[in-house]
Design a protein around this nucleic acid. Structure first.
Lengths: 123, 123
DNA sequence: TGAGTCTTCAACCAAGTGGTTGACAACGGG
DNA sequence: CCCGTTGTCAACCACTTGGTTGAAGACTCA
């Protein structure tokens, strides 16, 4: 994986455990232990997942005694959404233009049919 | 990487070369060779990238003699967008509620200040 | 048919990923 | 001050990934 930001964000979300952590954090902040609870992997593994999310800018951690409450950084989603929307819309416009071309072809075809009918009637 | 669809889509886009291919395809369909042209990796590597995108449902390929024109399947973007929006909005609402709470605290603080002032004036 | 073009398949390799266990740092409550 | 709790770091392992090269399949054209 390349180390640019967009790559890190997509890669971070390409794992169901990490997406689960994100969806849990959308409800509210939580400690590493709380986040690890639903999963049957070690707490160290979850700690690593959180590090990946933090490196991607999706999550931040603060200090509360020996606890490290995790917080979802929702702004970073915009980066993804913008990238996605750019190409989704671009592709959509292309399809719309294609539809327009096809519609125009149908009009032309109808005109040709009409001419053909007229010629047939004349002969 | 887990093999569920959302994971495949995110993982597919977690690579700058594959995002480049997607952005090229948003302009219009292209053959494997055309897609490989801008990159200084082998055509086989690009063919593999296209396979990853196809397995994620982001790209489809048709047949034109020995060519395999690639086509962007924009609908699959909706899957991601929906996932992202769900948690982005959920988090946003939470922040809005927090803002409301903070605003209310400020109001309470102003009331307390006011009482304090009144008491100070009375004493 | 035979040469040339476009693409994929197969085998291989270095580097990265997600998991483990063990050690340890940091902190709060008896 | 020690002990339990919380979390990270380090080393290791199996597996995946992104790249390579070489061969072969599928097709066109002379």
């Amino acid at each position: 994986m390349a180390d640019d930001e967009l790559s890190r964000v997509f890669a971070a979300l390409a794992d169901p455990t990490r997406r689960g952590i994100v969806s849990r954090l959308a409800v509210g902040d939580a400690t590493v232990g709380e986040l690890a609870d639903p999963y049957d992997v070690s707490i160290q593994a979850v700690s690593k997942h959180i590090k990946v999310l933090a490196d991607a800018g999706l999550v931040s951690q603060s200090k509360d005694a020996q606890r490290r409450p995790c917080h979802l950084e929702a702004e970073i989603f915009d980066l993804m959404t913008k990238w996605i929307e750019r190409y989704r819309l671009q592709a959509q416009e292309r399809y719309d233009r294609l539809d327009a071309v096809l519609a125009e072809m149908h009009v032309d075809q109808r005109r040709a049919d009409l001419r053909h009918l007229e010629q047939g009637a004349a002969s």
